[in-house]
């Protein structure tokens, strides 16, 4: 009976949302960027007099100093135009990691969960896999402004390395306090960059470094610095969650 009601609700809501939204949305082929904020982000014309109409001056490989010059526009949006959202987002992750810690910590003891039998191949191969994974993770978050990837993806990859360590042997236990301190420092670093922007340029989270040549590793001003901090923070947070889940009551 309950399922029937839920099914009716499903169909009703699908009809309500679908038909209603269909009237206003520009879907698929009808979708254009014209006049949207996304277009101005791509053209890097947010701060010009007429963001939607002005001719584009953006060019890959050139040094024209426009709006941070990150080749990956998504990164420019995430850590540039909408950096404040990202600050909130890492805070949310920080809060969740704290919450998970609080829930598991409540029972007092902090021993790690013993695995039945660590995989032999895994424990042998982890020795040389580990540096590779960490290197790859670091590569992903240092090149976030040039290629797909960035702090969140790189951070997850590094957390996977910590998980590998847990899987490889029963002796390993992540340094919980150290991770928490690293989290705090990288989060505070992000905020201090924001406050430095406020002091130097008058706007919170504004860029205060030279923006360089689009496509070069040392470009895009403050963006790579922030993404490295986010990478560290996310890796510490997710590793912390891994170690909390691997702990035993």
């Amino acid at each position: 009976m309950k399922k029937v009601i839920a099914l009716l609700l499903f169909l009703g809501l699908l009809f309500f949302l679908g038909t209603g939204l269909e009237q206003g949305l520009k879907l698929g082929d009808r979708n254009t960027l014209a006049g949207k904020a996304g277009e101005a982000y791509l053209k890097r014309t947010v701060n010009s007099a007429d963001p939607s109409a002005s001719p584009s001056q953006v060019e890959y490989g050139s040094e024209t100093d426009i709006e941070e010059n990150a080749a990956n526009t998504l990164t420019a949006v995430v850590v540039g135009y909408r950096s404040f959202d990202t600050l909130g987002e890492v805070t949310v992750l920080f809060l969740a990691a704290t919450g998970v810690m609080a829930l598991f910590f409540a029972s007092g003891k902090k021993k790690r969960l013993a695995l039945a039998k660590p995989n032999f191949i895994l424990s042998v191969s982890s020795g040389f896999l580990l540096p590779l994974i960490i290197l790859f993770g670091a590569y992903v978050f240092t090149h976030g402004h040039l290629t797909p990837g960035g702090g969140f993806q790189g951070g997850t990859i590094i957390a996977a390395a910590v998980l590998l360590l847990y899987m490889a042997g029963n002796a390993y236990k992540a340094p919980a306090t150290g991770l928490k301190v690293l989290e705090g420092f990288s989060g505070a670093g992000y905020l201090l960059i924001g406050l430095a922007g406020l002091l130097l340029t008058g706007f919170f989270l504004n860029n205060f470094l030279p923006s360089g040549k689009m496509g070069a590793l040392f470009s895009a001003g403050v963006i790579p610095v922030v993404y490295i901090l986010i990478g560290l923070k996310v890796s510490a947070e997710l590793s912390g969650i891994v170690s909390d889940y691997m702990g035993e009551d």
Partner: peptide
């Protein structure tokens, strides 16, 4: 054409979340 998001979804959404669920079930 959202490679960044695809990477995040694969690593965090599918990978990490699955780990969390399996650990929870295990415990």
């Amino acid at each position: 054409k959202a490679p960044d998001v695809a990477m995040t979804e694969a690593a965090i959404g599918a990978g990490f979340t699955t780990f969390l669920f399996l650990m929870a079930l295990n415990r």
